[in-house]
Structure formats: structure tokens, C-alpha cells
Design a protein around this nucleic acid. Structure first.
Lengths: 184, 184
DNA sequence: CAGGAATCTGACCGATCGGTCAGCTAGCGT
DNA sequence: ACGCTAGCTGACCGATCGGTCAGATTCCTG
């Protein structure tokens, strides 16, 4: 594997678990078996490392949202959205964990502003499909809880099944949670 | 209000939203209208500020858990636990947000180790009361989702009702989510 | 083998970090 | 008026931060 891709994955794990601010370029270099200078050879800056780490997941989430905002949101549409969301969660736990937890604290970092704008669009998407405060809370608990489960609770021994089992169970619980929210 | 209490609240808000590592003593001083030296007059170190900020909420959560671990966990016991948990969430959103999101990244900080041990005890408490992986996920989504809702999604305009409305809705949704989990 | 590009490195920079210390100042009991 | 204390401050410290740069090394290609 190339050093650049090595660094990308190391940085993603480290940013997600230890925090962006708390992770120094020196530490990334040590984890990759390189010098700090080499890290800055592959990436123009620390922010560039962050952008490389979460950019792909961000683009995929944007893609999902664009498709969904354009289409009609009937029962099938919501089901499809939940499936796409859960798949993205399962594929990009670290990225989601990173910009869910640290997004609000890293304003003024361009790629994070992109991520925050995305989260706000998801929130607006919910708000447009939820009439009451309780319905909004159902969306928040379903998506926030699912993201939290996969990203944080995983390290607490609460996750055991295979990926497919997890996917099915997640979709079942989230669907049940959102069942009372009628289509508008 | 005393400068010390001022600083405690400012630090709590700043640590929770911007992150512990990303918040400098200099910044806390500026927000409080003091010098950095004054901050270190009131608190022995940055860690001491953190401990003062989240200590009380931590103690309360520990108290709740001790009572619950000793008692029987019948339907009433679970209901009581959920109510105590939601009340704690509503009273200490910032503290919970802080050590839920940053706990895993701040190991070796004594007060955070205390918080992490607490989260692990909560997880073990769940595991002991959930037979299948899906049941564990229900606990994780209910509590993680509720915490995420109140702490993070709040800033996205998803929270609008009064505290009592939020409390009732939260308890309703969480109760519904955990209903399929039978008492052992 | 030659040579240019890709990769990597140590030395160094200014800024900021958490923390120490001596001393200034305002209030208060005597 | 006195001294004591609580509150506060600027100057300063070593360490580390993100980032620059000139040069060494490795590698591929002609």
C-alpha cells in the first residue's frame, strides 16, 4: 500500500478516536513509521490530511442526499433512504463518527464546514418530513442513535454480530421507530 | 457569581462544544474576562478545570447506577432507571455530551477514566439485561440516540418543545424502543 | 549506467501550549 | 494605620505545535 493511503487510513482512525486537535502530525508520522516531514510531503497541511480522510464519505453522503431531495418521499423512498444511510454508516463508521462528534467544534476548517452543511441538510430533510416535535425526535434518535451505536458503543463490547445481522437489525429498529411518522 | 463558578460553566460549555484539547487556558481566560494566570489561580491545572466541570454530573450518574445495580430490575426498575437517566440528560446535557464524545479520546486523564469506567458499567448493565445482539442495539440506540438528540441535534433546530414536553416524548420513545426487551 | 523524478529526512522557524513565580491591588478585621 | 489574605496579573519557562526548506536517498526509465 502506498504511504499516502497508509497515512490516510491512520489519520482517519486517529482523528476519529483521539480527536483532530489532539492528534499531532508527529503522532501520525510515528504511527506510519515516517518522519513528520514525510507526512507534509504527501499532504499540504494537517487540514489536507483531514480532507483526504473524510472527503470520500462526505461525497457519498452528499450524493445520497441529492438523489433523495429530488425524488418523492413516499414509503419506498424513506425505506431506500434508510438503507442507503445504514450502508454508509457501516462502510464509513470512522468518518461519520468523526464529523458527527467533532464537526461542531471544527468550524472554519473548509472540509468540516462542508460536513456541517451536510448534517444541517439532513436535519432540514427530517424537519420537512416531521410534523411534531416528537416526530423530529424520532428521526434524531433513529439516526443519531444508529450512528452512535456503530461508532462509539462498538468499543464497549455491545456489538457482536456479523455485518449483515447488524444491518438487518438496524433497519428493523429504525423502521419501527419511524413507523408512526406519517408521510406528508 | 464567583469567578470560579463562572470559569466552571464557561469551561464546561467550551470543552463540550469545542473539545478539551482544542480549548486553551488562554481562551477560557478571555471568555471569562480574566488572565490565564487567574484561571490557574482558581484551578491547579487544566485537568482540574475539567474535573470541576464534569465531576458533579459524574457523581450523580454513579449514584443512579449504584442504586440500580443493587436493586431488582423489574418493569418498575427499568422505568425508574429510564426516568433518572432522562432527567440527568436534561440537567447535564453538556457534561454528558463531553464525556460521551470525548471520553474515549482522553484516556489517562483521571477524571475521564472515571467517566469511561462509568460508561462501561452502563454498557455492562445493558449487556446483562439484553439477551440478543438486537436487544443490545435497542439499548444502545435508545440511550445513545437520546443523548445525541439532546446534546448535538439541539443546535440544528430539531429541538423546540419545553423541557417537560421533551421529557415525556423521550420517555415514550425510549420505552417503546425497549418494550420488546423482556425482563430476565 | 546516467539522470531526473519521487520519496524521505533533519534542522530550523515562529507561535502557542500548560504551567511557575514574584509581585501588584483591593478589601477587611483590628 | 496596620498587616493579612484573596484575587489577579505580566513576565517568563520548556515543550510541542504546524509548517518550511535544503539536501539526502531511493527508484524508475531511457
Amino acid at each position: 500500500m502506498s504511504s499516502q493511503e497508509d497515512l490516510r487510513l491512520i489519520a482517519l482512525a486517529e482523528f476519529a478516536t483521539a480527536g483532530y486537535a489532539a492528534t499531532s502530525l508527529q503522532r501520525l508520522a510515528e504511527l506510519a513509521g515516517l518522519s513528520k516531514s514525510s507526512v507534509l510531503y504527501h499532504f499540504a497541511s494537517k487540514e489536507a490530511v483531514l480532507e483526504a480522510a473524510i472527503g470520500p464519505a462526505l461525497a457519498r453522503m452528499e450524493q445520497i442526499l441529492v438523489e433523495r431531495e429530488l425524488g418523492v418521499l413516499d414509503d419506498n423512498g424513506r425505506r431506500a433512504f434508510l438503507e442507503q444511510f445504514v450502508d454508509l454508516l457501516l462502510d464509513h463508521r470512522l468518518e461519520v463518527h468523526l464529523f458527527i462528534n467533532q464537526g461542531p467544534s471544527l468550524v472554519d476548517v473548509p472540509v468540516i464546514d462542508r460536513a456541517n452543511a451536510l448534517v444541517e441538510r439532513i436535519a432540514a430533510f427530517f424537519a420537512a418530513n416531521a410534523a411534531t416535535a416528537e416526530e423530529k425526535m424520532r428521526f434524531g434518535i433513529a439516526l443519531g442513535g444508529a450512528a452512535y451505536m456503530l461508532c462509539t458503543a462498538q468499543s464497549l463490547g455491545l456489538m457482536v454480530g456479523t455485518r449483515e445481522e447488524t444491518r438487518v437489525a438496524l433497519l428493523s429498529i429504525m423502521g419501527e421507530l419511524l413507523a408512526p411518522v406519517r408521510i406528508r
